[in-house]
Amino acid sequence: MTVQQEEVSAVEARQEQQARSVSAATISSLVVLAALVLCPFFISGFQTFQLNLMLIYAIAIMGLNLLTGFNGQFSLGHGAFYAIGAYTAAILIDTFGVSYVWTLPAAGVICFVSGFLFGLPALRLEGVYLALATFALAVATPQMLKLSILEHWTGGVQGIVIRKPKAPFDLPLSQDQWLYFFTLFVGLLLYWAARNMVKSRSGRAIMAIRDNPLAARSMGVNVALYKSLTFGVSALFTGIAGALGAIVIQFVAPDSFTFVLSVALLVGLVVGGVGWLPGAIVGGAFIVFVPNIAEEISKGLSGAMYGLMLILLIYVMPTGAGGLIRTVTDRLTRR
């Protein structure tokens, strides 16, 4: 074989490989989707509720991933946007009698604006400084929500209780099941949007900023605008998740939105895989289920168990589930 022929066949082999892994990816996503759709019919109401929370956290993590994974900006404060979304939904339902469905776009818009505005000063901060600023945001959130001048809207420390919606059109679904499918639908919609955004021209600009801001600027990318916009979009996702969370839990109160929430989202992001969108499901599952497992192993030492499991997980997959899957498929397809 000549060198050229060799090269051609190498390219063909690579394309074949890609095609194979693409189809494998499609099949596995379909399997996951089918499992997600079927699950609620075989598990209890409470388990459905937990699964629903997993999806909600997955949406929030997806938002964080757009910011951190694709744009390279840290945030230890995404719990704040989650809280804003949750309170938007709760106040709209409780004070204004808006239907829960319409609170989602409202929460999205408000969070987009807040995220965009927060992203503007964040432009000047990098690395640890941005981490500190966002962490400050996370710490400040519950205190802001408790502010006495806002009490009329927020209900102060007591928070707001809202009622759980029923399934519409007399569908034969329990409230938990209905809300689960509602979340799943919203989640898929947002996943589709995120995927398209990442693959679009803007997505490439966003990633170029992450990889090399100077080069991106010299290629004519408006770095400041894109960074703030990404912050906004990221907050939008997380805010919608927050609104869903409020509807599903039927309750918002300041102390549900401490920095622990922000930290949990970050942990979920890393466990799922930074820069890999489907990893959000893994991250969401980690947030919901691992603390319970830790508690079951040892009540008194549940925190330590949680920490140990987290460390072991990072040892096994330092780059999260996404990294692990990438390594495994690489190895399988290369053979």
């Binding site: 930290v263 970050l266 942990v267 890393v270 925190g303 920490g307 987290l310």
Partner: peptide, 27 residues
């Protein structure tokens, strides 16, 4: 063992240590 892992993985280990020390002290 993980000194080549990305920054965020390190941060997660910090969080894990946080949980471990807090829980151990309480225990």
């Amino acid at each position: 063992p993980i000194h080549n892992a990305p920054v965020l993985s390190h941060i997660v280990i910090f969080i894990a240590l946080f949980a471990i020390f807090n829980s151990l002290a309480g225990f």
